[in-house]
Amino acid sequence: MFKGMTVTGAVLGLAILAGAASGQDAAQKALADATKARQAQMQLYAFNLGLLGGMAKGEVPYDATAATAAAGNLSSLAQLDQSRLWPEGSDEMGVEGSKVMAELWANMPDAMAKGADLVTAAAAMEVAAGTDLASLQAAMGALGGACGACHKAYRVPSN
C-alpha cells in the first residue's frame, strides 16, 4: 500500500519532470529554428552578393538584367519581416552555433536602424546594378558598410 503510493508518486513526479522538459525542449527548439533561419537569411544575402561582387571584380561579365535581379532579391530579403528571426534568448550563450551577442536585445532600436540602413543601401544597389558596371562597383562599398556595421556591433568576432 504505502509502497504502491510511493511508486505512483515517483511515476507522477517523473511524468511532471518529463512534461517540463518537453516544454523546455520545445522552447529551445524554437530558438534553434530561429537561429537556423536567421543564418539562412544571411546566407541568401551572401549568395546574391556573390553575383554582384563577381561582376564588380570583373570575374563575371556585367549583365544589367542579372545584376538587377540579384540586387532586387537582396532588397526584398532585407525588407522581409524579421520579427520571428531574432527571438530573445537566441544569443551565443542560448543556442549552440549562434554568433549573436546578447547586446543586440539591449539595443533593439539601434539594431533595427542598422537593418534599415541595409534596406537603403540595397535599394541604392538596385538602381546602380541596372545602370552600368561603374555604378555597381561604386555601390558595393556602402552595401558592405551596411552589412559590416551590424556585424561589428552585434556579432561575436570569429578571430
Binding site: 544575402y45 551572401a46 552578393l49 552595401l143 556585424h151 568576432p157
Partner: peptide, 13 residues
C-alpha cells in the same frame, strides 16, 4: 573597398 570576403561575409573585429 567594401569589407566583403570572397564568401561575401564581411571583415570583422
Amino acid at each position: 573597398t567594401s569589407g566583403f570576403t570572397p564568401d561575401y561575409d564581411t571583415a570583422g573585429g
